[in-house]
Each structure stands twice: as structure tokens, then as C-alpha cells.
Amino acid sequence: MQTSSRLVKWLISGPPLLFLLIFFVTPSLIMIFTSFRLPGEFGGLAPVKLLPGEVAGDSGLTIETYQFFFSDFIYIEIFLKSFAVATITTLICIAMAYPLALLIARSRKKFRNLMIMLVVLPFASNFLVRIYAWMIILGPESGLSHFINGILVFFGIAPVTLLFSPFAVLIGMVYVHLPFMILPLYTNLEKHDPILLDAAQDLGANSWQRFWYVTWPQSLPGIFSGSALVFIPALGMFAIPDILGGTGDIMIGNLIKDQFLGTRDWPFGSTLSIMLTLAVLGIAGLFSWFAKPAIRMT
């Protein structure tokens, strides 16, 4: 009996474990290893000499990518900028998701699912298609551009281009990530006990006070998990700045992509990826630490 249950344990945990060891752990280790190597003359990597007898100083391993990363503030600046974009995206998502999540949570039960479905539905369309839609809306020939620039010109302000700007990037970011904020927030708000609000009302709290002292603190775990779901993917995004961004919209993701598909510098690309991983781990740790007290969601 003992051996057979042992066997069962290995039978069911073995295959996924093996698969993930090969296709997740090994690639990650290789990425770390790659960051210490030298790029090949034409791309790819220079050979490594680890056999005994070879000169240690010329092993083909180096920490120069890390020195390069820290040698100039420019890369840290890109990280900071990406953090800023991800943070603003998250904040806008909170501001937009909250009223809707609250409304859904307070609607009659039979409408709730319909309303949630309406949030999820746009997600059935392809990710790139959703970004592309904004290219049309913000394009220089679009109605919106003409309208806004009409107003600006009327007040004597120079017309602006909406597409290919930081503004376009933010809109795209928010658009793509918004449901990831609405859903956890709704799941949280739905669980709130209305008795607490009634009690607050009985104690003479006005609607604003009821929100601020009762609903808001209770909803923090929902906000934290939503924020993690928005912030982390937003941090590594490259397609949105690539498609909607202008002359200055570059994020870590674009930089990493460029090392592999432009500059042919795999070691530095790996270093940047490792830095991004560290940043994500730090952020994830921070979120779970904040959210811990009450996070017992799905």
C-alpha cells in the first residue's frame, strides 16, 4: 500500500514536474548563463572554454554585461520609466474599474453575470486587434483627432497628434488590462456584507463616509490582486509601445526585444531579462505582503 501510493504520487506529479524542469527551469538557467557570455562576432554567442588546461582568463565568461548595465544611468532610467508607465496604467485602471465593479456588485443578482460577461466579451477579440482599434481612433484622419484639434485650434492652441504618443500608449495599456482589474475587484466587492453599510448609515455616516470607512478598506485586497494582475504584465509590455508609441516611447520590453531581434546581443538581452525578473519578483513580493492580511480569494 505504502509503495503503491508513493508510485501514484510520482505518476501524477512526475510528468508535469519533468516537463517544467526541462522547459521552464532549464531555459531560465540558460538565460542566466547566457548573460555571462560574450556575443558572437555575427550574432549568437562566442564559444565558452571550460575545459581544464585552458587559460582561466579567457574562459569566454564575463560579467561585462552587468558592468555595462550599470555603467550608464540610461538603462536604469528605462526601468524607472517602465515602472512609471505601469504604475500610471494601474492607477487609471483602479479609477475606471472601481465604479463599474461596485455597480455590478450592487446590482440585482440576475444582472450581475450579464454585466460581467459584457466586461469579458471584448477580450474574446485578439490582443493585437484591440490595440489596432486605437490606431484607427487616434489616427490623424480620425473623427476624434479632427474634433480635438478643432477645439484646440479654436482656442488658438497648436494641434496635437494623438497617435504615436505617450498618451496613445497609456490608452492602449489601460484598454488591454482593464478587465484584469475589474474582475478581482468585483469578486471582492461582491462578498461585502451590506449589513456593515446599514450599520454605518444608522450611526449617521453619509454616503461618502460609508464608502471611505467601510467599502474602501474592505476592498483593498481586491485592489492589490487586481494591481498585480495589471502591473506585472504592463511592466514587460513591448507590443503596445511598439505599435502605438512615438519617438520616445520605449520600455524594458522593447529594449529586450531589440537585443534579440535587432542588435544580435543575446548576453545583454539576457542580463536585461534577469533585471526585469528581479524587478517583478520584488514587486510580487511587495504586493503579496500588502495583500496578505485579507487575501483569501479564489
Partner: peptide, 15 residues
């Protein structure tokens, strides 16, 4: 699941 996708993409490419 929790990582930015680009990291998995890059490491698998190298692998």
C-alpha cells in the same frame, strides 16, 4: 503564469 510573457519567450528562444 505570473511572469511577464517576454521573459518566458526570451528564455525559451535561447533554450
Amino acid at each position: 503564469v505570473a511572469m511577464p510573457e517576454i521573459l518566458l519567450g526570451v528564455s525559451l528562444l535561447l533554450f
